[in-house]
Design a protein around this nucleic acid. Structure first.
Length: 458
DNA sequence: GGAACTCGCCAC
DNA sequence: AAACGTGGCGAGTTCC
């Protein structure tokens, strides 16, 4: 890829400078806390690991490997489970070996494997995150790098330490890791993230009227609508925990998967996994996740005539057809034409002024411009906020970025002004600078406590 | 003893 | 034919 305009070149040049200033600023690490937590984790690991070692499976493994026994080795575990005990692997890895990931171990139904799963999670927190924070900090400050020259899709990446993969979804991992990072004394973190940025950007490329309608109407919600179709529901209230889960499945295992180029067989399998229903054979009553009325999803699906997995797969096939033929036909046509044009010309152009030339697989050619341009919106905003920050001599600082999300270390007295400035840049300056932006861009701002860690942001 | 590989898992 | 896109990184393992 290369920049095809001065503006595009400037975006990367100024972006690199603005990100370098954020790197220079850095974030405080509570080193003492990290060391305490690492010790605690080590104790917990020892305890859980010894429970595993004493279990039947642990004993068998130790006898098989003797002095070479290593409870952290996936390969040894795979050999014990799938060769020695001749269990059937629930699924295989890329290279065709029996998988030993969490899901595979779970579905084997061997209780002591829960100890092994727990240990892996604790090791991950200790060795990937806390270790890196301590190793990378200088005088109590980490300076994560934000790179603009490494990623195929012209997003950014981060390393040393990687600020872009700090746990967010696993509550325990999130708490332990995010409590290590602090703003400057007397300051607080704020988090400004674009809501559904990639969907908005895809609409800028495909101009699908139905997609734009969803984006312009804040009361509509395509994931709720899709969930109703997929699960044959008359109504769905996403404020209810059970319904929210169905919406989550429709969104991530179907809508986004399809948008990224997946197909109905894989989507059906993934949705079944979300629902905790088998991906083969007949579906029995009283199985799977619960519905708000207290019943099981399997009962509901059976009552709607879907009593076998293959019936469900067929239903998802219809949903896929419905998605592309009725809901978003213009989007579907754009994908077809976009790839056809790329095959003919050997390159494609991003709306942000970059030309991508070379070999791209179909899904890459379709996804890359969307991912890239979405990140470029973040970068443009980051540069502009950085510029205003310096012009107006803020005490507040930009400190990081996670693809569609900016992190600032702000002085409480400036918070209101900082937030207003960001909103102004996104809703006024950015659409004015880039007239191709055809969908509304919204940014949500969350705030941490004064002297509070990343974990306090909400 | 380091490079390169696989596997698994964290993020968007 | 492929079949969900983009990364970083740690541990274990194998190759040279």
């Amino acid at each position: 890829m290369r920049a095809t305009s001065i503006d595009a070149y400037q975006l990367l040049h100024k972006g690199a400078e603005a990100l370098a200033r954020a790197e220079w600023q850095g974030m405080r690490v509570d080193v003492e806390y990290c060391e305490r937590s690492k010790k605690k984790l080590t104790y917990r690991i020892e305890r859980v690991e010894s429970l595993f070692n004493d279990s039947e499976l642990g004993q068998l493994w130790q006898h098989a490997y003797g002095g070479k026994y290593n409870p952290r080795s996936d390969r040894q575990l795979g050999h014990i489970l799938y060769d020695k005990l001749a269990l059937k692997p629930p699924h295989k890895t890329e290279s065709g070996e029996g998988s030993t990931d969490e899901e595979a171990l779970r579905s084997l139904g061997i209780p002591e494997l829960e100890y092994r799963i727990k240990c892996s999670k604790l090791y991950k927190i200790r060795d990937t995150y806390l270790d890196a924070f301590v190793r990378e900090q200088r005088d109590g400050i980490i300076h994560p790098f934000f790179n603009l020259h490494l990623v195929k899709s012209y997003r950014s990446s981060s390393d040393s330490p990687n600020f872009q993969n700090i746990p967010e979804h696993d509550e325990e991992a999130k708490r332990i890791c995010q409590r290590a990072i602090y703003p400057r004394p007397g300051h607080k973190f704020i988090n400004a993230d674009f809501s559904q940025l990639e969907v908005s950007i895809s609409a800028c490329y495909n101009k699908d009227p139905r997609l734009l309608e969803y984006l312009f109407n804040p009361n509509s919600d395509m994931h709720t609508d899709m969930a109703k179709y997929l699960f044959k529901l008359v109504s769905l209230d996403k404020s209810l925990r059970e319904d929210a889960w169905l919406r989550f499945s429709a969104k991530n295992a179907f809508v986004f998967a399809e948008f990224y180029g997946s197909y109905y067989e894989d989507c059906a399998k993934e949705i079944a996994r979300h629902l905790q229903l088998p991906s083969s054979g007949k579906w029995k009553k009283g199985k799977g996740v619960l519905l708000p009325d207290g019943g099981h999803i399997s009962d509901h699906m059976i009552s709607k005539g879907i009593s076998r997995y293959i019936d469900f797969e067929e239903h998802v096939r219809r949903a896929e057809k419905d998605l592309w033929e009725h809901r978003f036909p213009v989007y579907a046509e754009w994908r077809k034409q976009w790839y056809k044009d790329y095959e003919k010309r050997g390159y494609f152009d991003l709306l942000t002024g970059f030309r991508c030339q070379g070999f791209y697989k179909r899904n890459e050619a379709i996804n890359l411009p969307i991912q890239g341009s979405a990140f470029h919106c973040l970068l443009w905003t980051f540069i502009r906020v950085d510029e205003i920050m310096r012009e107006e001599k803020w005490d507040s600082r930009l400190v990081g970025e996670v693809h569609d999300d900016m992190i600032l270390d702000v002085h409480p007295d400036e918070q209101e002004h900082v937030e207003k400035t960001i909103q102004h840049v996104v809703s006024n300056e950015l659409p004015e600078a880039w007239s191709w932006i055809a969908a509304p861009l919204r940014i949500d701002i969350k705030s941490g406590d004064i002297d509070g860690s990343l974990y306090t942001i909400k």
